[in-house]
Design a binder for these strands. Sequence first.
DNA 1: CTGAAAGCGCTAACAC
DNA 2: GTGTTAGCGCTTTCAG
Lengths: 337, 337
Amino acid sequence: MATIKDVAKLAGVAISTASYALSGDRRVAAKTKEKVLEAAKQLNYRKNGFAMDLKRSRTNTIALILTDLSGPYYSELIRSVQDVALSNGYDLVACSSMGGKESTAVKFLREKRVDGAIVLAHNITDEVLLQTASSNFPIVAMDRVTTGEGLISIVVDGELGGYKATRHLIDHGHQSIAFVSGPANSYDNMLRYQGYLRAMHEAGLEEKAKWRLSGNFVRDGGYKVTKMMMMQGELPSAIFYGNDEMAIGGIKAIEEESYSVPDDISVIGFDDIQLAEYINPPLTTIRQPMHESGSLAGHLLFQMLNDQEVNDSYKLKVELVERKSVKSVEEVSKSLI
Amino acid sequence: MATIKDVAKLAGVAISTASYALSGDRRVAAKTKEKVLEAAKQLNYRKNGFAMDLKRSRTNTIALILTDLSGPYYSELIRSVQDVALSNGYDLVACSSMGGKESTAVKFLREKRVDGAIVLAHNITDEVLLQTASSNFPIVAMDRVTTGEGLISIVVDGELGGYKATRHLIDHGHQSIAFVSGPANSYDNMLRYQGYLRAMHEAGLEEKAKWRLSGNFVRDGGYKVTKMMMMQGELPSAIFYGNDEMAIGGIKAIEEESYSVPDDISVIGFDDIQLAEYINPPLTTIRQPMHESGSLAGHLLFQMLNDQEVNDSYKLKVELVERKSVKSVEEVSKSLI
DNA sequence: CTGAAAGCGCTAACAC
DNA sequence: GTGTTAGCGCTTTCAG
């Protein structure tokens, strides 16, 4: 591999001159520059990125760390972060935290291969974040509330979301409402559940233990849990699934047993993933402000990178998007007559 | 930022000893090692990744380059590449080629910030690929046929796909079949179109110019073009959309005009994106073997990285997945009686 | 305008 | 086992 040294030699100039010429410094004579460029081309010279980063001790790159690069949910988020990065003249790389402590993500953080990071990955411990972040290595954590030096957090108001979802069901006359939760250790899930409880209590409704089930935030979990619920006989009139994936699985289960959504059972989800609007019936759900949060995360990161003051935690509002998977009980009974 | 030098000094050992201790070389005494580790912890020492890469002149990382990180189509591909990378002990970063020559992607390639790359991004020119690839910087290009030193390619048999799709329609008795194409400069599109033509000619059918329209591979394009077609009056009995996105837009247009898919018009797509199975009616389409191609790309890259021989181009088969958007003309006419 | 030289932080011979 | 040292390839003073 040709180095700048080779280029300089071939062009018959000093290394520094070659460097200047290559990086377009204006003080090299046009003729010299041309010579260098020619030599570079001839040698198929490629500058070595690390050497440069090492010297500059800056990478001009930020990382977006996700649990699973292949998850389809993040598209909007990724896009907005990307836009912000681009408009700040920074590069963005995405990497996965699969593999926990050994993952690419953790390596990137620990070894400072980037100038800062946005992390949306629950399998990275708070400890790692706290240890890695510092004023010259800012991190924006999403969906968790850890803060510290150089570490700020953005969360979405899941409690409010849970409340809104449940309230929507109650407002439509539902009294028996099941909650299908995600993993027990999930902070998001807990918030959504708390919102659910608040709405239920406020309306003087009771949560039935047998209608609180866990589907682990995955489609198949929602499916299985719903099947189980149906086998037990007594059914709720509405189900609040902790996320859309589970709701999609749930709807499938419901329809397989020849019940109809929303005629027999109303369903509401959470997230508003892309699929939500395409399934049948289109899913009423709580929309996560992906675009806003990505964009906010990006901006905050750059503010920190530029040593500007930022708050250390942000909470984003959430909204209900009404589609066709919830029907009011009055309407349902009317149509039965 | 503490460097290894600081650690060594605090621990009272030489730099090399510190380095050995930190990287777990077995020849340092347990006690020394402990001292070093303790010092490192105290200083909150983080090793500098570039310095290491520079020294080692290897990064243990490969890049997956996509046009748009936020595209949802690639999930399966990303996952399979990720699996292969992980199981080879390599890290994977994904980056976007948005921004063309100035993009992160091109920078990563030119500056060799990784050991090799898989690129699925049409806005990166063949030239860049050819220039950057070399025996010690292998690149696997997907969806294009450029090859060169250290550069191999994987394509999916689009011609066959186009043929199969069209043939499926013909086998269902359709004679007037429209083709909605993607961008004119798209290689994929061309292949699919050729397959379409081959099937048409083989069946002695004629392509009508007015039924060959371009929807630019986007949903809205499919929608508009279909609307236009419908306004012109005479309708085909089936439409082959160059990709699923356009088909989804097209179906919307068709239904807005109170026609039904597949009762009035049969529709077939290409790609088998996740949505395809969820829309109404579920879309019959040609499945791209995303998982297989990702996995193949990964394996080939590692073979090249390990200086093993590989072919320089691979072509993957494609299969039809039959769902509900195509109906045979006999069935249709029967139901009209 | 050009050249010599000092490192950036780390690894890996090599010598003790 | 541990210390010394020579770079990896580049940028960037500082002299000339």
